[in-house]
Computed example of a mutant assay.
Amino acid sequence: MTPTGPLLVASDLDRTLIYSAAALHLDVPDAEAPRLLCVEVYQGKPLSYLTERAAALLPELAARSVLVPTTTRTREQYRRIQLPGPPAPFAICANGGHLLVDGRTDHDWHRAVLARLDDACAPLAEVRDHLRRTSDPAWLLKERTAEDLFAYLVVDRSLLPQTWIKDLAAWAEPLGWAVSVQGRKVYAVPRPLTKSAAVAEVARRTGARRTLAAGDSLLDADLLLAADAGWRPGHGELADTGWTAPHITALPEVGVGAGERILDEALRRVGA
């Protein structure tokens, strides 16, 4: 029997579909660089971009699938982004901690997430205290929490010792927490707080027959593993660590060109 139901496409945002100026990787002569569209402004300044061609592909993909932005950003940070096309009917924020339905928080989902975290890992306060005690003011720029779900640091990467990252990951592992480094940010996230769980809920609600996924960081690994097929760019934590899976395509493109290639590939799969 041929499966019915829509195709679901769940994609990470930062450094997967959208890119800051520092992450664009425009390694071509200036006159040959692609035209860019700004999709996020922060404090009156442009912050995130995609190529104009990617901007044209996004509405087409949204019209032919259930396109679900799937991000570690908080809800406030996500709402700064203005992607081309109609508003997404579903969006996943805070690494799966919040599910937005037509732009509104699904509080039942959030309560279920909190209950799962209470049963499975050490409290946020303990992890945050450890981060504060072990961080060095020489490289620590900011210390923050996100939606009272996880913690992150903004750091000077040029001064951040790799041994500190390894020590933090080893300390966090038995407490049920994971560590991820993305650009200037070091994340400490509860292991049960996953994008894949929230995507599975969207698939259940929409009756999706298959799921495609894209992401670049270790926090996207569970999302990619749970998908039927997907892509990772040639940059980011997954590429740097050589992470692979049989059903995930490792793209050679890096920077904003990788975002365009992901949309191309997703549209090809949707058409097939």
Rank of each mutant, 00 (worst) to 15 (best):
M1F: 11
T4S: 14
L13P: 11
A23S: 15
A23I: 12
L24T: 07
D27W: 01
D27L: 05
A31K: 12
A33C: 07
C38S: 15
V39H: 03
V39T: 05
T51D: 05
T51E: 02
P59S: 09
A62P: 12
A63T: 07
V66Q: 09
V68F: 06
P69F: 04
T74G: 11
R75D: 08
Y78I: 02
Q82D: 13
G85A: 07
P86G: 12
N95S: 11
N95E: 09
G96P: 13
H98M: 14
V101I: 15
R104I: 02
D106L: 05
D106M: 03
H107E: 15
H110Y: 08
A112M: 11
L114D: 12
R116F: 03
D118S: 14
V127P: 10
D129W: 11
T134M: 02
S135H: 09
D136S: 12
A138W: 00
A138M: 06
L140N: 03
A146S: 15
A151F: 12
Y152M: 05
V154F: 00
V154G: 04
V155G: 08
R157L: 01
L159K: 15
L160P: 09
I165F: 03
D167P: 08
A170H: 03
W171Q: 07
E173Q: 06
L175Q: 14
V179T: 03
V186Q: 06
A188G: 08
A188P: 09
R191M: 07
P192L: 10
P192T: 08
A197T: 15
V199P: 01
A203P: 12
R205V: 06
G207S: 07
R209M: 04
T211M: 13
L212V: 14
D216Y: 11
L219I: 05
D220Y: 03
D222W: 05
L223V: 13
L225H: 14
L225C: 15
A226H: 07
A227Q: 08
R232E: 00
R232M: 12
G234S: 02
A239N: 13
W243L: 05
E253Y: 02
D264S: 02
V270D: 01
A272I: 10
